[in-house]
């Protein structure tokens, strides 16, 4: 029998997480290349609706892994449920999106089964009989091809944006859906989660901005943010920042771009002194044009920049403000 790839999609608060489709696209590509079977699973309480939604895509089968104890999410319950499922439904490869929730339980699940997870992958390669997964290392400065040296199931998580969710293939007919009720004993769940909440009303909606000027560590001091602000004003754009700037309190948290902040896709993203750690890049790589100014010629931000300036932002920005004003005045 062919080996099985299981894609575990993510649902939260009654919604299928968008990145689930990306992981499904990855699963379809892998299944086609390896000649393996593709199945999907959704974990939770009352998740049959999601299972039916997935069943419209090109998959052999969809499982709804059900227990009242799976809502709200806890790592203890999710690991108990998925371990039980994988023991009775062996899979060669288990794929999930690299979300905060998956990060929270996958290492525990793999360890509970004596296995390992290759996390935050951006692709895969088939090399002869060997399957390797590509992931970024050293904050994106280097990449690594990583293989499993242990038995199945192999756990792999894919980075947000690694595959195109809109490229997921529809099935010729709806795949069968099976509900698997799992038994989670009393006392298994130790954490008591409260309601999910948002800190404060987000004052700035950067997702609507057409032009964003973002600052990173290279700005050095809080008072220097002023020149970035002046550039943003000259361009008629919004000011944003990478995480360390908001952590330091130099700009409010609602100006943060990246996995823990906002995800944006403006016409222009001008990155000043931002090295381009993965967590930042996932929040802005959809920008139509990226201009990066950084002292470090090896900064990962240059990998995705359309226009790059290797140099000191304090030298470049003041004349740039003047040039922008000149062009605007002339037009």
């Amino acid at each position: 029998m062919a080996d099985t790839i299981l894609v575990v999609v993510e649902q939260r608060e009654g919604k299928l997480n968008r990145v689930s489709w990306e992981t499904l696209t990855a699963g379809q590509a892998l299944a086609a290349e390896m000649g393996w079977m593709l199945e999907a699973a959704v974990v939770g309480s009352g998740v049959a609706g999601f299972a039916n939604e997935i069943a419209g895509k090109k998959v052999s089968k969809v499982y709804a892994i059900e227990s009242a104890k799976l809502e709200p999410y806890t790592p203890d319950a999710f690991v108990a449920a998925l371990k039980q499922f994988l023991v009775s439904h062996p899979a060669k490869l288990v794929l999930m999106p690299h979300t905060y929730q998956v990060r929270d339980f996958v290492p525990k699940l793999a360890t509970a089964m004596g296995r390992t997870a290759i996390s935050d992958c951006i692709g895969y390669k088939k090399e002869g009989e060997k399957l390797v997964f590509t992931r970024q290392m050293f904050q994106g400065k280097l990449a690594a091809d990583v293989s499993f040296t242990s038995d199945a199931p192999w756990f792999v998580t894919f980075q947000n944006g690694a595959y195109r969710g809109d490229k997921v293939e529809a099935g010729a007919s709806a795949a069968p859906v099976e509900t698997v009720n799992v038994d989670i004993a009393d006392g298994v769940i130790r954490n008591k989660p409260h309601e999910v909440f948002k800190e404060a009303k987000q004052a700035v909606d950067l997702t609507q901005a057409e032009i964003i000027v973002a600052v990173g560590r290279g700005i050095k001091e809080q008072k220097n943010i002023e020149i970035a602000k002046q550039l943003a004003e000259a361009l008629g754009g919004e000011l944003a920042a990478s995480r360390p700037i908001c952590d330091s309190g130099w700009l409010p948290m609602d100006r943060q771009i990246g996995s823990s902040g906002q995800t944006v896709a403006p016409k222009l993203y001008l990155a000043l002194g931002i090295s381009g750690a993965i967590q930042h890049i996932v929040g802005m790589k959809g920008a139509r044009t990226i201009i990066a100014v950084n002292k470090d010629s090896e900064a990962p931000i240059f990998e995705i920049a359309d226009y790059a300036v290797v140099g000191n932002l304090f030298d470049i920005v003041p004349p740039l403000i003047e040039e922008v004003k000149k062009v605007k005045a002339g037009s």
Binding site: Y100, P193, H194, S260, Q262
Partner: peptide
Amino acid sequence: ELEAGYFQFVDM
């Protein structure tokens, strides 16, 4: 900390 500015308290 959850994604996109969401948070959650957990007792453990």
